[in-house]
C-alpha cells in the first residue's frame, strides 16, 4: 500500500533532519578541520596529514591514550561485576524494601557531575580527606598522607566513577536478570543444581547478549571520560599529566590552546577507535547468535 511506503520516511524525518543539520554537517566540517591549521576563515592553511603525524609522536597524546585505556579497563573489570552482583542481590524475591535499596544505589547518578567533582576532589585529599581517614581508621597501617591526586589519579577517578555510575549499570543488569526464563531456573533447581551452578549455567548464558551490550556502552562511555577528572583536578590535567584523558586533551587543544585542527584530529582518532570497537562487538555477538 502507498501508505506503508512513505510512512517510515515521515516518521524518520524529524530525526534525520536534526541529525543531518547538527551532527552530519559539523562532522564533515571536523574532518576538513583536522587537515588544517586555522585561525578563522581568513587565516587557514591546509596541512594535510601533519596534524595526525604530530599526534603519533606527541608524548601527551600517548599519556592521554594510556590513562584513558587504564580507566576504561579499570571501569569495566571493576564496575560491571559489582553492578552485576548488586543486581543479583537486589533481584532476590525474598528481599524486603527493594524499591528503597534500588533508589539508594541508583541515586549517585542523579547528582550533577559538578558536585561529584567537588565532592571527590575533597574525598581524595591527603590527611583529612574522607577516604584516607576511613582507610586509616579500618587499617591503621594505611598512610594518611597517601597522595591520591598526585600519584594515583586514575585509580581515584575509577573509584569516583564507580560510585557515580554503578547504580546505572545495576539497573541494566536488573533488567537483564528479570528476563531470565523462570522455567529454566526451576528446571535447574529440580535437577539439583545449587545457586552457584544455576548462576553459571543458566543465568550467565541468558544475560550474555545484554551483558555484551552493557560492556560495549560502558567502554564507549568510559573512553570518553572527561568532566569528572577535569573537575576533580580543578580544571587541570594533574601533575605530569597523570589525569589527562583523550577527550580532556581534545578539549584543552581545541578550546584552551585554540588549535581546532589538532583537536579535530584527536577526535577522529578516538572516533575510529570507537567505530572499530563497535564493529568488533557486532561481529562477536553475531557470531554467538549463530
Amino acid at each position: 500500500m502507498n501508505r506503508t511506503r512513505i510512512a517510515p520516511f515521515v516518521f524518520l524525518t524529524p530525526f534525520l533532519l536534526v541529525f543531518a543539520t547538527f551532527i552530519l554537517y559539523p562532522l564533515v566540517q571536523s574532518v576538513i578541520l583536522s587537515t588544517e591549521q586555522t585561525y578563522g576563515p581568513e587565516f587557514t592553511t591546509f596541512v594535510g596529514w601533519d596534524n595526525y603525524r604530530f599526534l603519533f609522536e606527541d608524548p601527551r597524546f600517548h599519556k592521554a591514550f594510556i590513562n584513558t585505556l587504564i580507566f576504561a579497563l579499570g571501569s569495566i573489570f571493576l564496575q560491571l561485576p559489582i553492578a552485576l552482583g548488586l543486581a543479583l542481590l537486589l533481584n532476590q524475591p525474598w528481599l524486603k524494601g527493594r524499591a528503597i535499596y534500588r533508589l539508594i544505589v541508583f541515586s549517585p547518578a542523579l547528582i550533577g557531575t559538578i558536585f561529584v567533582g567537588v565532592l571527590f576532589g575533597i574525598v581524595f585529599q591527603k590527611r583529612f580527606g574522607l577516604l584516607n581517614q576511613a582507610l586509616h581508621f579500618f587499617f591503621p597501617i594505611w598512610d594518611l598522607d597517601f597522595a591520591w591526586l598526585e600519584h594515583y589519579i586514575m585509580p581515584a577517578i575509577i573509584i569516583a566513577s564507580l560510585w557515580m555510575w554503578c547504580g546505572y549499570n545495576m539497573v541494566y543488569f536488573l533488567a537483564a536478570l528479570q528476563n531470565v526464563s523462570k522455567d529454566l531456573l526451576n528446571a535447574a533447581k529440580i535437577d539439583g543444581a545449587n545457586a552457584w551452578h544455576r548462576f553459571i549455567h543458566v543465568v550467565l548464558p541468558a544475560i550474555r547478549p545484554i551483558a555484551g551490550f552493557i560492556m560495549l556502552i560502558s567502554i564507549i562511555g568510559s573512553l570518553q571520560v572527561f568532566e569528572l577528572p577535569y573537575l576533580m583536578l580543578g580544571a587541570t590535567s594533574g601533575i605530569q599529566d597523570r589525569g589527562l584523558t583523550l577527550v580532556m586533551y581534545l578539549y584543552q587543544t581545541g578550546f584552551e590552546t585554540n588549535d581546532l585542527g589538532y583537536a579535530s584530529a584527536i577526535g577522529w582518532v578516538l572516533a575510529i577507535i570507537l567505530i572499530l570497537l563497535a564493529m568488533g562487538h557486532r561481529r562477536l555477538s553475531r557470531g554467538e547468535a549463530e
Binding site: G121, I122, Q125, K126, R127, F128, G129, A147, L149, E150, G234
Partner: peptide
C-alpha cells in the same frame, strides 16, 4: 610540604600547623 591547592583540607592542614 605539599599542601592542597583547593581549599577544604588545606584549611585543616594549616590549622594543624602542617
Amino acid at each position: 610540604a605539599i599542601i592542597p591547592w583547593q581549599t577544604g583540607t588545606r584549611t585543616k592542614m594549616i590549622a594543624e600547623g602542617y
